[in-house]
Design a protein around this nucleic acid. Sequence first.
DNA 1: ATAAGGCCCTGACCGC
DNA 2: TGCGGTCAGGGCCTTA
Length: 281
Amino acid sequence: MPELPEVETYLRDLTPTLTGRRVIAVQVFWPRTIATPSVDAFCQEMEGQVFAHFGRRGKFMLLGLAGGDTLIVHLRMTGRLHLEPASTEPSPHTHVVMALDDGRALHYTDTRKFGRLWLVSDSETVLGHLGPEPLGAGFTAAYLAGRLAGRRASIKALLLDQGMVAGVGNIYADEALFLAGIHPAWPAGSLALEEVERLCGAVASVLRQAIDRQGSSLGDSRWQNYRRPNGQPGSFQDEHKVFQRTGQPCVRCGQSIQRMVIAQRGTHFCPHCQPLAGHPG
DNA sequence: ATAAGGCCCTGACCGC
DNA sequence: TGCGGTCAGGGCCTTA
């Protein structure tokens, strides 16, 4: 499940090998993967393009082309970008192949087909709705408190809202809430300012640590699809305190980690370290 | 405006 | 062994 740290790792891995490479041919095997433009236009416009610069916005990968356009990639659940020799046959889950001028090909594979690619001249048409970067200067306690004010939805649900803050997904929402000692079901608008400050710091802290460890690659077969472009796993899963640890002892207090569903997402927390008791709602 | 639920997809897993 | 049903989930869309 690629979230911000996994996408950041992807970009750091791809930048040195992809910079300056020219696309010489494009094949699309699953048309819905291309969000915009049409598949024909996408193939036509990508051919001859040179990868020039790389960036990230939330969970979106930005592959800047020398001609000025941007190839935007969102891996969603199970998407992967990886370089293969030109002779490598596309796997059954490979949906886009871009042959490069160095004898290799950039493959986009995605088991569940949720991921999307956009080729645009103005990135803002795709990214305009996103909230601030959680590791940037715009993500402050004052900002977050202002956005949470009056909201009755759970804090976990709002952390997952990409318009609130860009790049936090299910893993890091759970881990950040544990670090901040806040119950995921707590009504967002009734958090004390001190708790919002703690949460702000916890989100940034968890994401930084996860980037340092090249993201989370879970052993559970359902989740194992995140791998770095070279196939190696990240290692932040070893640092998870609550995510996918249902029934195991809390590393801080020893109580059993519990699971509940919030915003249709599996949610993991320690009932002792993240108490809900005493709250009216 | 916010909140809640369905949808897209597939493979793992479960019960019979 | 085989088979049908359930589940997981990010973002987008519809509904209330």
